[in-house]
C-alpha cells in the first residue's frame, strides 16, 4: 500500500524506473546469467526501493544497486541448491560457414558464459568495474568491502576469465591481451 501511495505522490519514482530499468536489467542479467531471473530480480529490487523511497530518493541509483547486488547473491545461492531449469531455446551446434560476424557473436557469448562461471563476489566486482565502469572505491562502497578486497577479487576474476576464455577455441580475446 505504501508503494501505491508513493507512486501516486512522487512521479520522481516513475521517472527513475523509466530511466534506470534498462541498465539495471542488463546488470541483473550478468549477475544471474538468466533473463527470467534478471527480470524478477529487477522488479523485486524496484519494489524494495519504492517501499523505502523516502530514504532512497536522495540517491536511488546507489540504493537500488545495493538491493540488486544483495538479492543476486541470495538468488544465486538458492539457485545452487536446486537443479537449474534447461533453457527452452538452446541452439544446436550446427553452424556451417563461420564469417567474421559469427566470430564476434561467439566471442561475446563466450564472455557472458565465462562470467557466469565466476564465484558471485568475483562476478559482482567484474560487472561493476568493467561493465558499469565504476571505480575501485565506488565498487567497494556498493559491496561493503575494502578497496584492497575489490582489487583482489578483480585480479582473481580476470585471471579466471582468461583461463576460461583461453580454453575456448573460438575466442581470441584472452590470448590477445594476456601479457
Amino acid at each position: 500500500m505504501e508503494f501505491l501511495r508513493g507512486m501516486r505522490e512522487d512521479p520522481a519514482f516513475e521517472a527513475f524506473v523509466e530511466r534506470c530499468s534498462t541498465p539495471l536489467l542488463r546488470t541483473a542479467y550478468l549477475l544471474t546469467g538468466d533473463r527470467g531471473h534478471a527480470e524478477d530480480l529487477l522488479q523485486v529490487a524496484l519494489l524494495r526501493t519504492a517501499r523505502r523511497w523516502r530514504t532512497a530518493r536522495e540517491a536511488p541509483e546507489i540504493y537500488v544497486r545495493k538491493v540488486l547486488l544483495n538479492l543476486s547473491r541470495d538468488r544465486i545461492r538458492r539457485l545452487m541448491r536446486r537443479p537449474r531449469e534447461k533453457p527452452l531455446d538452446s541452439v544446436p551446434d550446427t553452424v556451417g560457414t563461420i564469417g567474421p560476424h559469427d566470430h564476434q557473436v561467439a566471442e561475446r557469448r563466450a564472455v557472458v558464459e565465462a562470467l557466469a562461471r565466476l564465484p558471485i563476489r568475483q562476478r559482482q566486482v567484474i560487472v561493476l568495474r568493467y561493465f558499469e565502469d565504476l571505480t575501485v572505491e565506488q565498487t567497494a562502497d556498493l559491496l561493503k568491502m575494502s578497496s584492497g578486497t575489490v582489487k583482489s577479487y578483480t585480479s582473481r576474476g580476470l585471471g579466471r576469465l582468461r583461463e576460461l576464455l583461453t580454453d575456448n577455441d573460438n575466442n581470441r580475446i584472452a590470448r590477445t591481451h594476456h601479457g
Binding site: T22, V111, V127, Y130, T154, L161, R162, A174, H177, H178
Partner: peptide
Amino acid sequence: FGERLGTLLRNELSDVYP
C-alpha cells in the same frame, strides 16, 4: 583486458530491454 571485456558485454546486451 577488463575494458575489452566490458565492451564485449555491452555489445552483447545492447538489445536487452525490459
